[in-house]
Design a protein around this nucleic acid. Structure first.
Length: 212
DNA sequence: GCTAGGATGCTCT
DNA sequence: GAGCATCCTAGCC
């Protein structure tokens, strides 16, 4: 059995994984496998960069001002997908954390492509030759590569065609770095972006003293 | 190598 | 009407 067949059969991470403090979940999502199957193909990638958006005291979080039609999925139970449309052309995907009603989530920012790379390249619609590093190194690049859009909003990650799986590549604390989040104007001091420090697949290298 | 600017439309005030 | 959890390209070192 090859890797793809194995990941097809792997059990999703349980709901209890997500129903914990958001910062904990965010760190532990690093190194996990994101499996997606849809019209454009079957994909597996390894998460290398995420950002946490908390339920309370986090002005950058979409949930900061309470529920609205757009952010409603953030108030669903842990393990739900929150996909939104931004800048008039891009989608970003989060997984909801904590018990339902809280309003917290973790944004997937970058991943290492493992399977379905040709289809990812097609989905990205890049002209000419482009390095593999450019496939999933940003939240909107990732959703485009995997063919994620609003139809995935409010789905859960406990499905055969949309799930997060354990790749058995646990990381030590020393391999994880934290930096301020990217592309926001409020809450910029909070170090809630988590990366696999030496991964070449992350979106941006932010130069900072305290990337531990 | 880097930066500035434009694309583009939904969401909430 | 402003702002947006972005990306790509052109133009400039």
């Amino acid at each position: 059995m090859n890797w793809l067949e194995k990941s097809f059969r792997k059990k999703p991470l349980p709901r209890s994984f997500y129903q914990r403090p958001t910062l904990e979940v965010a760190k532990e999502l690093l190194g996990k496998g994101l499996f997606v199957k849809n019209r454009s193909g079957s994909f597996l990638c390894r998460i290398v960069e995420v950002e946490a958006y908390l339920a309370e005291d986090d002005p950058a979080s979409h949930s900061f001002r309470g529920p609205t039609p757009r952010n409603a999925p953030m108030f669903c139970e842990g393990g739900t997908a929150y996909v939104y449309f931004t800048y008039g052309m891009h989608f970003c995907m989060n997984v909801v954390t904590e018990p339902s009603g809280k309003g917290a989530a973790v944004l997937f920012r970058a991943a290492e492509p493992l399977l379905g790379i040709k289809e990812m390249q097609k989905n990205r619609k890049l002209k000419g030759e482009s390095p593999l590093k450019n496939l999933c190194s940003g939240p909107a690049k990732l959703t485009q590569a995997l063919g994620i859009n609003l139809k995935d909003n409010k789905r859960t990650f406990f499905r055969p065609e949309l799930k997060l799986i354990d790749l058995r590549q646990d990381l030590s604390d020393s391999q994880i770095g934290s930096t301020p989040r990217i592309g926001i104007s409020k809450g910029t001091e909070l170090p809630f972006r988590f990366i696999i420090k030496d991964s070449p697949w992350i979106s941006k290298h932010v130069f900072r003293k305290h990337t531990r």
